[in-house]
Simulated scan of single mutants.
Amino acid sequence: MAAHALYLGLISGTSVDGIDAAIVQFDDDHGLCRAAMRFGRTYPWEAALQARLVALGQQAGALTLDDLGELDTRIADGFADAACRALADAGLAASEVAAIGSHGQTLRHRPLGRGGDGRDGFTLQLGDPSRIAERTGILTVADFRRRDVAAGGHGAPLLPALHAALLHADGEDRAVLNLGGIGNLTLLPGDGAAVRGFDTGPANGLMDAWCQRHTGAAFDRDGALAAGGRVDAALLERLRADPWFALPPPKSTGRDQFHLDWVGAALRGDEAVADVQATLLALSALTIADALRAAQPGTARLIACGGGVHNAALTRALADALPGVTVESSAAHGLDPDYVEAMGFAWLARRTLLGLPGNLPSVTGAAGPRILGGIYPA
């Protein structure tokens, strides 16, 4: 395997706002030292499919087996289209890419199962990797989460090992925050102690869904809707009282738990749209801050990535909730915040092909390190 081969990472997050594609070059055979993104871009979903995925994430409707099979194919085609467009836009041939790492689209994530004991735990990402390999002509690695869940883990978050490789600093306690639909933290102790990580709860997902339902916009640009409202303190406390927030790590969650019906159950019914948006923003910022203070109280620097970095109101709220902590974008460390996750799945594909584990048991709670994903030759 060439030491400087290119890998293409693909992911669509819980907000379903597009398919992120990142073409990445790693500098050694383990991909642990440095990663250089050669190209990154977000490609739109086909509108009707995106609407269907958003509705499913908000608990709307059931799926027949035929529906499930059709979605698996249509999602794969969306991912394959994004990969082919990324190659064309980057001026690269398929033969120049060693592998695609495809996360797929999460439909459900219940690693503890319905009973909460993990015996029936599962995670479901759609996007047939055989179809992606066939369409692109590139070996594809996919289905990264299920092996960790099979080993008793949460299958998430999976990127703390990459965060540690790229962003750890001796002598400074750091945390990496991914602000996707769901927020997740990676804890990087400056003394070399074990890396930890876990989901914190909603980040952008609830705000996006509320904004779309009431304004038609896919997201709250710059937090403008939230900035026009006032935090409803009573509503905020009802939402923060959800028992999930008090669970100890390891833990993970998704839109199947934090969705608009969950919000609706806490509403009186007469709240202003902007006030609810402001409250959801405060919920994201405060639950992230609560989790960070509890898990690593000495954190000096919080490095944020993901789409929420562009929400100025959210980043201000985070800084206000974490006095004494430097809150900054991963861009300050040479990593485009929009594509860190996609880079991560390129990295995981490389790990799989090298026969190296991709999970961290200290993060996911799995029984041990595991080689993740399946390999689908071109």
Rank of each mutant, 00 (worst) to 15 (best):
G307N: 05
R221G: 06
A209G: 09
K251G: 13
I303C: 05
A227E: 14
L322T: 05
V309E: 13
D290N: 11
A217S: 12
M343D: 08
D222A: 15
A217D: 13
A295W: 11
A217Y: 02
T326C: 12
V263E: 12
T279H: 14
H333C: 07
A346Y: 01
W244N: 00
G308R: 03
G228E: 07
A349W: 10
P337W: 07
C305L: 01
T253F: 11
A241Q: 03
D336W: 04
H214R: 14
S252W: 11
H310E: 09
R230D: 00
A346K: 01
L235W: 10
D232R: 11
A319W: 03
A319F: 04
A291F: 00
C305T: 11
V263Q: 10
L348V: 06
V273S: 04
G223P: 02
L283M: 14
A272C: 12
L286R: 15
V276Q: 07
V273R: 14
A272D: 15
D338L: 08
R316G: 01
L292S: 09
D338S: 11
A321K: 04
G334A: 11
L239T: 08
T253W: 07
L280I: 12
A209P: 07
F258T: 01
P250T: 12
S284I: 04
H310S: 15
A217R: 09
R238Q: 13
G216V: 13
S284F: 03
F345R: 04
A226Y: 06
T299E: 02
A342Q: 09
I303E: 04
P323I: 13
V273G: 05
A332F: 02
A226L: 12
E341A: 13
R213Y: 03
Q212I: 00
A291Y: 00
G264P: 11
A246P: 00
A282D: 02
L225P: 03
A233P: 00
R230P: 00
R230K: 08
N311D: 15
T299H: 05
G228K: 07
A282K: 06
A319C: 09
A294D: 11
D261E: 15
L302V: 05
T279K: 10
H259T: 04
R213E: 15
A319K: 06
I288R: 07
V263I: 15
R230G: 00
A349V: 04
T253L: 13
D320S: 14
T215G: 08
L314D: 03
D270L: 02
L239P: 04
A300D: 01
A291G: 10
S284M: 03
G229S: 01
P250V: 10
P323Q: 14
A349L: 11
S329R: 07
D270H: 09
D290K: 00
D290V: 01
K251H: 14
L239E: 12
A332P: 00
S330P: 03
L314R: 07
L281G: 12
P323K: 13
A331S: 15
L239A: 11
L302K: 02
L314G: 07
A282I: 11
P243G: 03
H214K: 05
G269I: 14
G306W: 03
A224L: 09
F345M: 10
D261V: 10
G324N: 12
G228Q: 08
W262I: 11
A227L: 10
G264D: 14
L318H: 09
D338V: 00
